[in-house]
Design a binder for these strands. Structure first.
Lengths: 283, 283
DNA sequence: AAAATAGTGTCTGTCAGACAGTATATC
DNA sequence: GATATACTGTCTGACAGACACTATTTT
């Protein structure tokens, strides 16, 4: 055993939340909601001054899920989030300090539960609005081999300062003898540390995919009580497309229960508040 | 950095294939097909004489996918398999030799491409027929918390010797404040080394899930040319249920192309051979 | 002809997509 | 009453489930 080198092991977390915009300018319109991700400005080398995902080293006496949970509590104060591993990042050279292998975690939280206070003291943790756009670059198909390149452009905007980070990640799907292989490479890092541009893109893809499949994962981004429109908005943000209200409501009806409360102070007819129907979540 | 302990890192592979049974006794019936997994009898301590998944340590200059591919070639001779990471195993104490973290890979191969020769010399690598049965144990639902326990019974049968290994793994899904957490524990190891009972069960679950969703993953278990019935059989084996032939064919029609060959020597009307329709796989 | 598998046509109910319409709060 | 959002009813077409039927080869 000891003749093998050993890597350091870390858990990196893509913490997503729905960010509610500031009160709208147009006096009666609803505030815009966006998908947000939590990033931390690095204070030390390497990548000093760059933005990175929250995360940290795993200790010998804990599993990686515990590592991630521990870091999440430290960074956000949240202790009951949806937390799920979505990929391992082990490319040689991904960390200039040496051999570091990272487990990526997808964490979904309700922003209001976090203690990442808005505009906190020069704080090094901040919410960024996330936009991921996808562009198929080329299909290259031969007899027994095919290659499809897709470019993902990641745009992050600092919620308070407006600072913008842009990064590009390329996905290559190779079909060799009908077997699919996927690989990623970073084309442009922007001000993101390490390979975190790739981790963020893949975390978003994982979120998107799960939302498209079962959908229920979106509830983990919502507060305890919510309106059906804010829920629909969350779906639309993650799926990247508009949904038709009647159809959406028909689909999620089994998963929600009406309360007898409504929202207030909105300048138009107030919406009813709903909560999750727990029973429907237990398959 | 150096003040942290470091784990050893390994890739463990659940190599699945469809095993075609011996010629049937009843003179004209088709041979039965089963799902098979490749296991290796451990020659050294710990767990000497127990069966384990093929796998090995990752080296500093390769990523985990390369580690897995390297091991797969060594063990089976196959170099173009479907190979996909499905989970990380990092529970403290999972390996008595120390801190070992393992990335689990799902590998799907066509058995006929492998060099794990049937009944090879006291060989320490062997195909086992796999059966996983699932039993929901209990639902325990309170106001803000729920717990669902499910027991998975794994039954492995050595293809040549008939040796049977039985293991049991318990899955606990906890819903706390509406957030799902899943954890696994091994109830009964049988003659399986380390936590490989859990890895095998979760690999099977991953295969099952992907087959139920998109379905196309099943093609990775098939040879280049196949009959629609053998394809349906593979689906049925992985999904664990019978399918209706006309509906199945309607569903997979876009993914296959008819050749003008047929199988021969079957004692009844021979079936046409089909191959994959590559174009349909490129989303 | 019997056995066994190969393969097709079509009815039906469910459900997602689309759209038209009604309701109710604030300003 | 104007504005803005809240909420509902129903038509339609696509598609999965079910089943009845025909076809073709070997023994």
């Amino acid at each position: 055993m000891s003749r093998y080198d050993r890597p350091s092991l870390t858990a990196d977390m893509a913490v997503f939340a729905i960010l509610t915009g500031e009160a709208a300018e147009e006096y009666r319109k609803d505030p815009e909601q966006k998908l947000g991700i939590l990033l931390i400005k690095r204070g030390g080398f390497p990548y000093k001054g760059y933005w990175a995902l929250p995360g940290g080293f795993s200790a010998k006496d804990e599993n990686l899920h515990q590592t991630a949970m521990r870091e999440l509590v430290e960074e956000t104060g949240v202790d009951t989030a949806y937390l799920e591993p979505f990929g391992v990042f082990s490319e040689p050279g991904r960390d200039p300090r040496g051999w570091v292998v990272s487990q990526g975690f997808l964490a979904l939280v309700d922003e209001h539960d976090t203690k990442v206070s808005a505009g906190s003291d020069a704080g090094d943790a901040a919410w960024f609005k996330v936009d991921v756009s996808r562009k198929e670059l080329k299909k290259h198909v031969l007899k027994t081999k095919a290659e499809i390149k897709t470019k993902y452009t990641l745009r992050l905007e600092h919620r308070e300062t407006g600072e913008v980070i842009e990064a590009e990640v390329e996905e290559v799907k190779t079909y060799n003898n009908h077997h699919e292989t996927v690989s990623y490479s970073i084309l442009e890092n922007g001000l993101l540390a390490f390979d975190h541009a790739e981790i963020i893109v893949r975390a978003f893809m994982s979120l998107h995919e799960q939302a498209a499949d079962a959908g229920r994962i979106i509830f983990d981004l919502m507060p305890e009580k919510f309106t059906l429109y804010s829920l629909q908005d969350a779906y639309e943000i993650v799926l990247g497309e508009k949904l038709l209200t009647p159809n959406f409501r028909r689909k999620i009806a089994p998963y929600v229960i009406e309360t007898n409360e409504t929202i207030t102070g909105v300048g138009h007819r107030p919406a009813k508040l709903f909560k999750r129907n727990l029973d429907a979540f237990y398959d």
